[in-house]
């Protein structure tokens, strides 16, 4: 369990997200805790259904009913925000937390020009008049690398290409200089060559402004390149969290280990990729103990009954019984 730190920009404590339905309650995110420091890029990686996007949605208060935060706290700059009423949350969203979504086309209103949307967002959050807001919008567009911003500011979203649209979305997220940006699969809909542009842009901007980013993605490559720390999620829980170098190079959790092995690499040819058998359990079938136990090659008796907590190993934290004292002893005995 990570200790709450004083300098954390965002602290998530024991967050649990539930989806009640007529057959019972599905737990999509189960008791996760993590911190993001100012200016830090935290990558959140996992397969679809691991709960990574939901965690992002919960932080900005955009969980769609019937989904709900059942337990836990979300603390932004020392202030608890998870139980705020909608109106106040709306003010925080945009002003203090920006958001970037996967599909740039759906996050822009097709009926308004890009400039109009930027100016409106700026004026919602900052005390600027129309002229000043337009100047700021222009600055933002230039900052995110849109050539000919002066002219393009009056264009409509459909006149931009995919990569350019994503840049506009980033500009929108940056409008009010938020301290934190939640980026949910920001490069998934883009081609490889454009992906690299967007990642380096995002990285550069955050570095300049000291903005923290929670980068949600399924792409380990993007994480390896952009993130400072990474949290690996599995079945609504954090399996491993730590500095990106350590997690990528010396993955500790058997799941992370398998995940890294299953990614094909250019340069070293292998005949068969490492594969993790089976697939992530459905929400109503999450096994007791460690949720990874049916697929784990190093499964032990206690994995079937006892849920592992996160515990420090080197600079990372890993939720795996292999790293318990008993487990370590057993491992050493082999």
């Amino acid at each position: 369990m990570p200790k709450p730190s004083n300098q954390a920009l965002l602290s998530v404590r024991n967050l649990r997200i539930e989806f009640p339905n007529r057959r019972g309650i599905l737990v999509a995110v189960d008791d996760i805790s993590f911190d993001i420091a100012p200016g830090e890029i935290l990558g959140v990686v996992g397969e679809s259904g691991a709960g990574k996007s939901l965690t992002g949605a919960a932080i900005i208060g955009l969980l769609e009913p019937p989904g709900r935060i059942a337990r836990g706290e979300i603390i932004l700059e020392g202030e608890r925000i998870d139980h705020l009423p909608y109106e106040e949350l709306r003010k925080i969203r945009g002003r203090r937390i920006g958001a970037i979504f996967q599909d740039p086309l759906t996050s822009l209103n097709p009926l308004y020009s890009v400039g109009r949307q930027l100016i409106e967002t700026i004026q919602t959050h900052l005390p600027l008049n129309e002229r000043e807001a337009r100047v700021r919008a222009l600055e933002l567009l230039e900052e995110v690398g849109i050539p000919g911003a002066e002219e393009r500011i009056d264009h409509y979203p459909h006149q931009f290409s995919g990569g350019m649209r994503q840049r506009v979305v980033i500009a929108l997220a940056l409008c009010a200089e938020p301290r934190l940006i939640i980026a949910d699969e920001p490069t998934t809909a883009l081609d490889v060559s454009i992906q690299a542009q967007i990642i380096s842009l995002l990285k550069g901007l955050c570095h300049e402004h000291g903005t923290a980013v929670m980068l949600v993605t399924h792409d380990m490559g993007v994480i390896a390149e952009a993130a400072d720390r990474v949290a690996v999620m599995y079945s609504g829980r954090i399996a491993e969290i730590g500095p990106v170098q350590e997690v990528v190079r010396t993955a500790k959790h058997p799941y992370t280990h398998g995940l890294m092995g299953s990614i094909p690499h250019i340069g070293h040819h292998v005949d068969q990729l490492t594969q993790i058998e089976g697939s992530m359990p459905r929400l109503q079938e999450i096994p007791t103990g460690c949720p990874f136990n049916p697929r784990c090659i190093q499964v032990m008796d206690r994995c079937l009954v006892e849920r592992p907590d996160l515990q420090g190993v080197d600079q990372s934290e890993v939720a795996c019984h292999l790293f318990d004292e008993a487990g370590l002893a057993a491992g050493a005995g082999e």
Binding site: A28, L63, E64, P66, G67, F101, S107, D184
Partner: peptide
């Protein structure tokens, strides 16, 4: 939008 994949589809029908 955020949750199109994860939340909106929770609707059981």
């Amino acid at each position: 939008m955020w949750s199109i994949r994860d939340c909106a589809l929770i609707n059981p029908l």
